[in-house]
């Protein structure tokens, strides 16, 4: 067994997922975690694939040239460690940042998170609003390490958001077990 990380991006149209995953099926691979979404009209796929012994990066890449050509996709395949790395434990929080688009929002917010030892588990950004007045929206799921001071973090984030001219809100994600 070997694990591969596969990414494929191309102008959105029906059939991309079916064409790409057909290759894995033909090679006896199993799809594990994946994330696929439309990013500004482009369909972007990220997949972790579990392949039987003997299947190589080169074989998968070669087999993917067919769907890549048909759908005009940029494809990359990389072998990854079979062990599952563990993410830091802690409380799940959600951060929303939004405001007039300008360079540096993602970098400066995430640098602040990194400086505070906060792990990002999911991040999406979208440019929304009217073309002449674009609004940047970023949603982050993050893990606050045990003992972290959420109030202090909120103050720091608010201070930085003011500096960037955007709004932000941080709240705990409490999934209720029903």
């Amino acid at each position: 067994m070997a694990h591969f990380a596969v990414s494929a991006v191309g102008a959105d149209r029906p059939g991309i997922v079916a064409a790409v995953t057909a290759v894995f099926l033909e090679h006896g691979c199993n799809l594990e975690d994946s994330s696929m979404s439309i990013l500004r009209g482009h369909f972007a796929m990220m997949l972790l694939v579990n392949a039987p012994d003997g299947v190589t990066e080169e074989q998968l890449e070669a087999a993917l040239t067919d769907p890549a050509a048909r759908f005009d996709l940029v494809v990359a395949v990389r072998r990854i460690d079979d062990r599952v790395p563990t993410s830091p434990a802690g409380e799940q929080w959600n951060l929303a940042v939004y405001g007039a688009d300008r360079p540096g929002i993602v970098h400066r917010i995430t640098q602040l998170l990194a400086d505070n030892d906060i792990n990002i588990v999911d991040l999406t950004t979208h440019v929304i609003g009217e073309p002449d007045q674009p609004v940047y929206a970023m949603l982050v799921d993050l893990t606050l390490p045990p003992g972290a001071d959420a109030e202090l973090l909120t103050r720091r984030l608010t201070h930085l958001a003011d500096d960037l001219g955007v709004d932000c809100s941080l709240h705990r994600v409490e999934a209720d077990v029903l």
């Binding site: 979404s37 939004y98 999406t124 979208h126 929304i128 609003g129 609004v135 929206a137 949603l139 029903l178």
Partner: peptide, 28 residues
């Protein structure tokens, strides 16, 4: 409502709201 769904064979996974849908509806 969550428990009532179980009686009809529905899990929360059958009702998940798309994250995109939440985003796209926001209008500033």
């Amino acid at each position: 409502l969550h428990e009532l769904d179980h009686l009809d064979g529905l899990l929360f996974l059958d009702r998940v709201a798309s994250q995109d849908a939440i985003f796209r509806r926001k209008v500033y």
